[in-house]
Design a protein around this nucleic acid. Structure first.
Ligand SMILES: Nc1ncnc2c1ncn2[C@@H]1O[C@H](COP(=O)(O)OP(=O)(O)OP(=O)(O)O)[C@@H](O)[C@H]1O
Length: 799
DNA sequence: ATAGCGTCCGACCGG
DNA sequence: CGGACGCTAT
C-alpha cells in the first residue's frame, strides 16, 4: 500500500473519499477526478479493514472496467483483490445470476445470447409468425425489446399496460407484443439470457426473493458506481434494491456527459438520488486536472449552448497549451491521411508515444478509411518512399469472439454447457452433415409447438413427433451422438482448457480448415489456436487469483460479454487507439483527434428532430473534446463516401457553437481549391498556413481507390488475430503476458529471491507466509507489491 | 442440400 | 462499397 496516497487528493476529493457515514454523490465536470475518487476510495476502504468481497464497484464499458482495475492495482500493492466485485454491470450481475439462476427459473448453466444471437432469434420468430421483415426489421425490433427490458416491462406488463402497445401502434408495428412474447418464451426454453435479461432478471431475482436480496444487502457494505448519469431504469433499480440500511453507496457522474439515452439512460436517475436517499451527501469537484485551459475553454464554450444542464464551475491550473484546431478537408479519404500525418509529425516533433494518441469517431464504420491511412503510414515522402505503418488498435467493431470460426467454436462449447437454439442453428450443419434449412425449420417449429428447446426435440424426435424422413432422422441421430460425445469431455475436475481442447479435437474444427491452404484458412486456424490460448490463460489466471478451477461456463460468460476484444496482433505494444466517442467515455489521452465532425454525424442524421436529441449529440462532442490532455484536433470533410458514393456533407453545426476566438481553423489546399458551399464557415478560416496543410499536394488525395493498401478484411487474414486477455470478473488484471514459468515450493525461495513472473515481470520476494496456503509477497519492478498464492503462481527463479 | 453467383439495399452508439 | 439474401445449376 502506498502510504500517503490520500495526500494525492485535493481537499474536496479527500472529503469524498473519507466520507463513510452514508450515501454520497460526487457530481462534477469532466476531468475533475471523479473516477480518481472512486479508485482511491476503494483503496481507503480496504485499508480501513473492509473486506474486498464487501465492495461492489461498477462501470459501464469493458475498457473503463480494465482501466479502473489497473488504477486500483497501482495503489494497492500487496492486497488480495481477487474477491473484489469489480466490473461492468453486465459481468457482475451475470455472476450473481449464475449463482441464483434456479430462483428465476433458469439453470445455472444458462448461456448468454449476444446481440447477433438475439437479432437472429428475433428474425426467425418474425419469419415464423409470417410478418413482413421490412416492417418488422429484426434489428429495430431487437432494439425495441431491449428498451422494454431496460424499462422493466415484461411481455405480461406489455399486455396489461396499453401505453407500450400504443407506442408500437403509432410506430406501425402493432404485433410487437406477440414477437416479444415469443422471443422470451424461446429464450426461456433455450435457457438463454440476452444482455438485457442480465439486468432485467437481476431485478426480478432481488424483487421476488427477499432472502436473496437480504443476503446481498448484507454482503455489500459499499456500492460504488462510475458514470451514474448513464444508468437506465433497470440499472438504477438494481442499485436501489441492493442498497440496504447498512450499505453505503457512492456514485459519481456528470449530467453534461450523459450520452447513452439510446439504451434508456436517464439523467434523472442521478438528479433524483437525493429524494431516494434523504441523507445523501453531495460533493462537487471544481478543478480540472486533465486538460489545458484552451481545451477546457472550447469544451465549456460548446456545452454552454445546451439549455438543459446544471451549470458547473470548473477551472484548471494547467497552462493555456495549444489552441484547439479545426481542419477542413476535401474528402474523408484526404482527412484520413491528414490524421496519419498529424500523428506522425506530432510524435516526431514532441516526442510522443503512439499510445499518446486516440482517434475518435461517431460510428465504427468510420475506422476503415482511417485504418488504411495508418497502415500506409501517411503520405509518401518527397522521394516517393512510403512511410512505415503507424501501429494502431481498435476497440469495438467486430470483436475477436464474433469472428465466424471463433464463434463456431464457442457454439460447440455452448453445446456442452447448454445447447441453446442459436448455437444449434449455427453448428448443426457445420461441418456439413446434410441437415439443411428445411430440417432445421422443422425441428424449430416442432420445438416451438411443444414449448421445448430444439435440443429436446433432437434428443427425442419420436416423442415430440418430429416429421422428417428416415434418412434425415439418421443424420440428426449422428449429430446428437457427436454432441453427446463432446459433452462427456466436461467431466468434473476437468478445467475449461482441457474441455475446450477436447472439443476442438473431437469436432475436427481445425482439420476442416487444413483442407485448402488459402491465407484466410491459415488465419482461421491461427484464430482457433488463439482461442485455445485465451482459454488457457483464463484458467491460469483464475487459478492463481482465486484458487478455483475455471469452468467452461464461466469462460463462455466472459467471452460473450467481451464485446470489445479486438483482434490486432500488436495489441499489447505501443499503438494509437481508434474507437468511438461512446467507448472513450471516462478515458483520457494526451492527443485526441476527432474525425468526421460533420452535420450528419455530430449530430447523427438520426438525431436531428428534437432538442433533447441535439443536446445529447452536443454532449457527445463535449465528451470527445474533454478526453484530450494537451492537443485536440477536429476534422471534417466536404464529401464523405457513403454507400460507395461520394456525398457532400456540411460541417458540424456544433463548430458554430464554439467561440471562434478559441479555435484555429485551417483547410487543406485541396479543400480550399474547391470553392466552398459553406461560406459562413469558410469565412472563419485563419489565413495562416497552419503546419503546412496547404502545402500538401492535392493530387495525392484525388484518387480514392480501394486497392492502394489491403482492406481491413485482407489485412486481418494476413496476420494472426488474438484476443486481449480475458480475466475473470472478480479478479484484478495483470500486465500483458510474456513467457511462461512454472510452480514452485516454498523451500526454493527466500526473502530476496528474484523471480520473473509470466505476467508481472521481474520482482523480489519480500515476504513468505506459510500459515495457511503458502503465499509470497513479491515487490515487482513494474507493479509494486503483490501477493501470490504459491501453489498456483507461475514464475521462474532468476536469482 | 448446397455452392456460387448476381442483385439489392442501406449505413449509430455498448454490454 | 460490402454484407445479406435469393436464385440457379448441380
Ligand atoms: N488531485 C489530483 N491531483 C493530480 N491529478 C489529479 C487529481 N485528481 C485527478 N487527477 C487526474 O486528472 C485526470 C482526470 O481524472 P478522472 O479520470 O478521475 O476524472 P473524471 O472526473 O472521472 O473525468 P471524466 O468525467 O471525464 O471521466 C486523471 O489523469 C487523474 O489522475
Amino acid at each position: 500500500m502506498q502510504s500517503n496516497y490520500i495526500e494525492q487528493l485535493n481537499p474536496q476529493q479527500k472529503a469524498a473519499v473519507l466520507y463513510t457515514d452514508g450515501p454520497e454523490l460526487v457530481i462534477a465536470g469532466a476531468g475533475s477526478g471523479k473516477t480518481r475518487v472512486l479508485t482511491y476510495k476503494i483503496a481507503y476502504l480496504l485499508d480501513q479493514g473492509v473486506a474486498p468481497w464487501q465492495i461492489m464497484a461498477l462501470t459501464f464499458t469493458n475498457k473503463a472496467a480494465r482501466e479502473m482495475r489497473e488504477r486500483v492495482e497501482l495503489l494497492l500493492d500487496a492486497q488480495d483483490l481477487g474477491k473484489l466485485w469489480m466490473g461492468t454491470f453486465h459481468s457482475i450481475f451475470a455472476r450473481i445470476l449464475r449463482l441464483n439462476a434456479e430462483k428465476i427459473g433458469f439453470k445455472s448453466n444458462y448461456t448468454i445470447y449476444d446481440a447477433s444471437d438475439s437479432v437472429s432469434a428475433i428474425k426467425h420468430i418474425i419469419k415464423d409468425l409470417g410478418y413482413d421483415d421490412k416492417v418488422y426489421k429484426p434489428s429495430s425490433i431487437q432494439a425495441r425489446i431491449s428498451n422494454l427490458k431496460n424499462a422493466m416491462v415484461s411481455p405480461a406488463d406489455y399486455k396489461r399496460d396499453k401505453r407500450w402497445a400504443q407506442e408500437d401502434i403509432e410506430a406501425k408495428r402493432p404485433y410487437l407484443g406477440v414477437i416479444y412474447d415469443a422471443y422470451c418464451t424461446q429464450c426461456r426454453n433455450s435457457q438463454a439470457l440476452d444482455f438485457d435479461d442480465l439486468l432485467y432478471y437481476t431485478n426480478v431475482l432481488l424483487r421476488d426473493n427477499p432472502d436473496v436480496r437480504a443476503r446481498y444487502m448484507q454482503q455489500f457494505k459499499y456500492i460504488l458506481v462510475d458514470e451514474y448519469q448513464d444508468t437506465n431504469f433497470a440499472q438504477d433499480l438494481i442499485i436501489k434494491q441492493l442498497a440496504g440500511d447498512d450499505t453505503k453507496i457512492c456514485v459519481v457522474g456528470d449530467d453534461a456527459q450523459s450520452i447513452y439515452s439510446f439504451r434508456g439512460a436517464n439523467i434523472d436517475n442521478i438528479l433524483n438520488l437525493q429524494s431516494i436517499y434523504p441523507g445523501l451527501k453531495i460533493f462537487k469537484l471544481e478543478e480540472n486536472y486533465r486538460s489545458t485551459q484552451n481545451i477546457l475553454d472550447v469544451a465549456n464554450s460548446l456545452i454552454a449552448a445546451n439549455t438543459h444542464q446544471y451549470r458547473k464551475h470548473i477551472f484548471t491550473h494547467n497552462g493555456a497549451g495549444k489552441k484547439v484546431r479545426v481542419i477542413r478537408c476535401a474528402s474523408d479519404y484526404e482527412e484520413s491521411y491528414i490524421i496519419a500525418n498529424t500523428i506522425a509529425s506530432l510524435k516526431r516533433q514532441a516526442g510522443y508515444k503512439w499510445s499518446d494518441f486516440a482517434v475518435l469517431y461517431r460510428t465504427n464504420s468510420q475506422s476503415r478509411v482511417i485504418e488504411k491511412a495508418l497502415n500506409s503510414g501517411g503520405l509518401a515522402n518527397d522521394h516517393g518512399h512510403m512511410r512505415s505503418p503507424i501501429p494502431y488498435r481498435i476497440y469495438g467493431g467486430l470483436a475477436f469472439f464474433q469472428r465466424k470460426e471463433v464463434k463456431d467454436a464457442l457454439c460447440y462449447f455452448k453445446m456442452v454447457i447448454n445447447p441453446d437454439d442459436e448455437a444449434i442453428r449455427r453448428i448443426i450443419n457445420y461441418p456439413r452433415r446434410g441437415i439443411g434449412d428445411t430440417t432445421v425449420e422443422k425441428i424449430h417449429r416442432c420445438a416451438a409447438r411443444k414449448k421445448v428447446s430444439m435440443w429436446e426435440v433432437i434428443t427425442r424426435p419420436g416423442f415430440y413427433g418430429l416429421d422428417v424422413n428416415r434418412g434425415t432422422l439418421g443424420k440428426i441421430a449422428s449429430f446428437k451422438a457427436k454432441v453427446d460425445e463432446i459433452q462427456q469431455l466436461d467431466r468434473a475436475g476437468k478445467d475449461a482448457y482441457e474441455t475446450a481442447r477436447g472439443i476442438i479435437e473431437k469436432t475436427g474444427l481445425l482439420e476442416i480448415l487444413m483442407g485448402d491452404k488459402t491465407p484466410e484458412n491459415i488465419s482461421r486456424q491461427e484464430n482457433l489456436q488463439e482461442l485455445l490460448n485465451s482459454v488457457k490463460e483464463y484458467v491460469d489466471n483464475h487459478l492463481e487469483e482465486t484458487g478455483n478451477v475455471a469452468t467452461l461456463a464461466e469462460y463462455l460468460t466472459d467471452a460473450a460479454l467481451a464485446t470489445d476484444q479486438d483482434n490486432d496482433q500488436n495489441a499489447d505494444g505501443d499503438c494509437v487507439t481508434l474507437m468511438t466517442v461512446h467507448a472513450a467515455k471516462g478515458l483520457e489521452y494526451r492527443n485526441v483527434i476527432i474525425s468526421g465532425v460533420e452535420d450528419n454525424r455530430f449530430p447523427s442524421y438520426k438525431n436531428q428532430d428534437r432538442l433533447a436529441q441535439i443536446e445529447e449529440e452536443r454532449r457527445l462532442l463535449y465528451v470527445a473534446i474533454t478526453r484530450a490532455k494537451e492537443n485536440c484536433i477536429m476534422l471534417y470533410s466536404d464529401t464523405v463516401v457513403m454507400a460507395g458514393k461520394p456525398t457532400p456533407v456540411a460541417p458540424s453545426r456544433f463548430i458554430m457553437d464554439i467561440d471562434p476566438k478559441l479555435l484555429l481553423m485551417s483547410q487543406t489546399s485541396f479543400a480550399a481549391s474547391k470553392a466552398g458551399s459553406y461560406d459562413s464557415y469558410h469565412s472563419r478560416w485563419d489565413r495562416e498556413n497552419e503546419e503546412g496543410y496547404k502545402e500538401h499536394n492535392a493530387h495525392q488525395y484525388q484518387s480514392h481507390r480501394a486497392s492502394d493498401s489491403p482492406t481491413r478484411a485482407e489485412s486481418q487474414h494476413l496476420q494472426a488475430a488474438s484476443p486481449r486477455r480475458l480475466t475473470p470478473v472478480r479478479q484484478v488484471q495483470g500486465r500483458p503476458t510474456t513467457g511462461g514459468g512454472s510452480a514452485h515450493t516454498p523451500d526454493e525461495l527466500h526473502v530476496g529471491t528474484v523471480i520473473k513472473h509470466a505476467r508481472f515481470g521481474e520482482g523480489t520476494v519480500t515476504n513468505i507466509d506459510l500459515t495457511t496456503d503458502a503465499k509470497i509477497t513479491v515487490n515487482f519492478n513494474a507493479l509494486g507489491q503483490k501477493l501470490l498464492l504459491l501453489k498456483f503462481a507461475k514464475f521462474d527463479i532468476v536469482g
